[in-house]
Write a protein that binds this DNA or RNA. Sequence first.
DNA 1: TTGTACGCGTTATCAG
DNA 2: CTGATAACGCGTACAA
Lengths: 351, 351
Amino acid sequence: MVRIKDIAEKAGVSTGTVDRVLHERGRVAEDVRQKVLEIAKELNYQPNLLARTLVNNRTYDIAALIPDPAQDDYWQAPQTGIEKAAAELTQYGVRVTQFIFDPLNANSFKEQAAEVRARQPIAILVAPIFYRESLAYFKQWKEAGIPFALFNTHIPDYEPLIYIGQDSYQSGYLAAKLLQYGHPEGGTFLVVHIDVDLANSSHLINKEQGFYDYFHQHSAGKMFKIVQADLGNSTSEAFQDQLDKLLLQNPEVKGIFVTNSKAHTVAQYLQTKGISQIRLIGYDLMEKNLEFLNKGTIDFLINQNPKGQGYWGIYGLADQLVFKKKTNPIKYLPLDIITKENLHYYIEADL
Amino acid sequence: MVRIKDIAEKAGVSTGTVDRVLHERGRVAEDVRQKVLEIAKELNYQPNLLARTLVNNRTYDIAALIPDPAQDDYWQAPQTGIEKAAAELTQYGVRVTQFIFDPLNANSFKEQAAEVRARQPIAILVAPIFYRESLAYFKQWKEAGIPFALFNTHIPDYEPLIYIGQDSYQSGYLAAKLLQYGHPEGGTFLVVHIDVDLANSSHLINKEQGFYDYFHQHSAGKMFKIVQADLGNSTSEAFQDQLDKLLLQNPEVKGIFVTNSKAHTVAQYLQTKGISQIRLIGYDLMEKNLEFLNKGTIDFLINQNPKGQGYWGIYGLADQLVFKKKTNPIKYLPLDIITKENLHYYIEADL
DNA sequence: TTGTACGCGTTATCAG
DNA sequence: CTGATAACGCGTACAA
């Protein structure tokens, strides 16, 4: 391994001078500068990250602004990922503080976002599930010079440093493929949004669009009919009535695509009604979904790797800000296709 | 962060003594020993890995005994993974030497395996694709006290330190599920082995077994007929004849499962013959396979994450031997289901 | 503009 | 049995 000292000796200067050249701090005579740079390249000098970090014992404060897992199970996994990354990075002086908001309450988001600012972190990781309310804070952070990373939902308006998550459009496209593969002869398929403010959730609209487009591009002479539905109150009695009506109006439904993690509510309905021939595709490996995946009521789940989103979100920020690595500003995680038969490996996966 | 120095001060001893207690080297008075251990626990002391590695500037030699990518494209990816891990680990003093053998020639394997031993590495990573020939070397290494890790193919006989790869049985099971999902009405399905010495390839037999078992467990009153075939010489003219005969004998074939990375040879055949209604499932994201996946001739590929196998293989050894971490002796990588629509994310994935 | 010396946390050596 | 001290490679304050 080549050290600063080696370069210094070869150039006939001291380590201090080499350091100044390499970090562009302090004034150095131009000819020495050139010579040092040349030798560094020639010897292919690679700084020793360990020693660098060891001496640089400052702490880096990162804020994570995330929804409360207690309100919606889905957010458990990102939190776990964030905490895993945090644990691995403590030895490098990275400290992660969580700011938890209620995913059903935009005001709660605003409150927590305000608190983040007060703490003056060097960076922020946020799941911007409230499109409208997020924009003002992005602007603030941008002006304050605090870089931020987005996960789960991409909002490009204020150029986040990093986005970690899925390509929503493509995942809808994939869902369509899986349903069509199982029913090449044609039929009626439903796209269902459950318990969401659709107008404020651009990523769900993208999923729907991808779903439509696949069928439009691949009908191949067969009749494929796509019906959209926006359902609410999945925990109430009225939910069953909504589905009853939907299936009455579309008696020949072959498959249903649920655009978020609530596929289990439809599965519960199908099971209660004793309907087994309708294929069902949803998102996310949550306990309730897995139960129906294992029973066969849900055929496929598309995994958003939520744990990985949290993990790479924090790690990506650290890579850029602490280790000064250049990383890709957009990291699309794979669209994992999960069925009963390969589920087990994804659950136990480290990331 | 709690340092050795902190413990030393609190215990009224020197750092040297604390070090001796923590590493169980040298003699220390029993009462001081207890006191130091107690304080260390109380303060939740975590050694600073950076500093430890910095001072410990010995080099760790790891040997990688792998098939030649020039002979079979499949092995390109594991090599890339190995080299990636090697690059990341050089700063920790890890040096990886590759020993390349011809995957079609067991003698070449034996030659390289013999050379490995001469180099006296601290550990060995090997893809033991020759079952019979591998055993003798495992025994030698075991006796010499050199730990080894297996990837791609699991051979538990001599207890490798780590196995990284797939659950072959389960991947066959999954392939069956995918074919059956597309044809719930029943039909004939082929399991095809191509260009292999089947008797010496236990993992392929496991895949076949999983494939059978799925259909046996899920026939649900429908008629599913499974036919096995062992084909060779995929590059010759005779290959077409073998497939011709097979399809003549089984005119109602609905799907074909190729147990290794050679699905493209069957795809080429189907394309040439103008057959489009037969579903095809294979393994591995190699250039030739991808071409037919994108055309739709191949419906699904099961990804073995070969790059990840190489990467985690080296990293796993380093984790245990260099960083002294405890890691799981078996790391089953996910059975990724790849189709044209989600392919792109797996190709660009870092691992 | 340049060189020197100290400190980061840990390990190893040597003297007591 | 124990304590002091040098060294790993780098960054930085301070002296020249």
